[in-house]
């Protein structure tokens, strides 16, 4: 990366930046860019929020009927398994 980084440079490296995986000098350049560039700062905030929103939004619960079937299935299979050992 050149001495001054562009928005594009920063956004290309966002994943490693968020993970804290960038070398210190590269991270310093990104930090500097973010401080002077409001669009990038907002982009970073929304990039991180995307993961949070998606995780919350895609949450799902197992239906009771499926849970009951799972329970019966395991009982049945495991007793078969145990009988086989005897």
């Amino acid at each position: 990366m050149s001495a001054t980084s562009t928005c594009q440079d920063c956004i290309d490296l966002l994943l490693d930046y968020v993970d804290g995986e960038l070398p210190a000098d590269t991270k310093a350049k990104l930090d500097e860019h973010f401080h002077g560039c409001q669009p990038c700062e907002d982009f970073l905030a929304t990039y991180q929020a995307t993961s949070t929103l998606c995780r919350r939004s895609l949450a799902k619960k197992m239906p009771d009927s499926v849970a009951a079937k799972l329970h019966d299935f395991l009982r049945h299979e495991i007793s078969k398994d145990r009988d086989g050992e005897r």
């Binding site: 669009p39 990038c40 907002d42 905030a45 929304t46 929103l53």
Partner: peptide, 16 residues
């Protein structure tokens, strides 16, 4: 020049 073209809205507070 590698600069963002569009305006960026910050809706991140909604995530919480």
């Amino acid at each position: 020049r590698g600069s963002l073209i569009d305006e960026v809205a910050d809706w991140s507070p909604n995530a919480e």
